[in-house]
C-alpha cells in the first residue's frame, strides 16, 4: 500500500483512539501526525457506541519507540480520551474497497467468478464497467485488486483499517 522502504523493527501498528466529537478534533489529530513526522498508512473515523465520542482507527508504520510516542502525543490532545495499541491483540481487522474495473461483456462472467471466490459483491454494472465491493483483511483486498488489475482498474477507493478486539474486552475503558 505504501512505498516506504522496510525499516528494521518497524511494522504496521494499529491504534484505536476515542475522542470527543467536537469541531477541530480531527484536524488536531491529523496535524499532530504531520508535524511529528509519523507515517500514517490509513486513518478512519466514525461514531462509536457512546454518543459524543468518535472512534478512530489509525495504522502507523512504526517501531515500539515510535508507537509509544504516537500514543503519548495523542493523549496530550485535550479532546482525546483513550488510546490503545491493539496490534498484538486478537482483533477483527477489516477494510472495505470499491473497485471499478473495465468490463466489456466478453469478460464479465470471468470477473464475476473471481469476485465470488473472494466473496465480493458486484454492486454496479454499466456497459463498459463493473463495480465490486469487497470487505476483508488488507491482504485479501490487495489480492483481489492484483487479480483484477489486468482487466484495467478504472477507479479504486479503500477505507483503510477498522478494527475491534475480539471477545469481551473492549477498547472503551478497561482493556
Amino acid at each position: 500500500m505504501s512505498a516506504i522502504p522496510a525499516k528494521e523493527g518497524f511494522s504496521r501498528r494499529t491504534l484505536v483512539a476515542l475522542m470527543e466529537d467536537k469541531p477541530g478534533v480531527l484536524s488536531h489529530v491529523v496535524n499532530l501526525f504531520r508535524r511529528r513526522n509519523y507515517n500514517i498508512e490509513s486513518l478512519t473515523v466514525g461514531h462509536s457506541e457512546t454518543p459524543g465520542i468518535s472512534r478512530m482507527t489509525v495504522v502507523v508504520y512504526a517501531n515500539d519507540a515510535v508507537v509509544e510516542q504516537v500514543m503519548k502525543q495523542l493523549y496530550k490532545l485535550i479532546n482525546v480520551v483513550k488510546v490503545s495499541d491493539i496490534s498484538d491483540d486478537a482483533a477483527v481487522i477489516r477494510e472495505l474497497a470499491l473497485i471499478k474495473v473495465h468490463a466489456p461483456s466478453s469478460v464479465r462472467a470471468e470477473i464475476k467468478q473471481l469476485a465470488d471466490i473472494f466473496r465480493a459483491q458486484i454492486v454496479d454494472v454499466s456497459r463498459e464497467s463493473m463495480t465490486i465491493e469487497i470487505t476483508g483483511t488488507e491482504d485479501k483486498v490487495d489480492s483481489l485488486i492484483e487479480i483484477l488489475r489486468p482487466f484495467g482498474i478504472k477507479e479504486l477507493t479503500r477505507t483503510g483499517r477498522v478494527a475491534m478486539v475480539r471477545g469481551a474486552l473492549h477498547t472503551n475503558g478497561n482493556t
Binding site: P23, G24, S27, H28, N31, L32, R35, I78
Partner: peptide, 14 residues
C-alpha cells in the same frame, strides 16, 4: 488563526 496555531498551542478554540 486556530488552524495556524494548532501546532503551537496546548489547545485552541474557535
Amino acid at each position: 488563526i486556530t488552524g495556524i496555531t494548532m501546532p503551537i498551542t496546548k489547545h485552541n478554540y474557535l
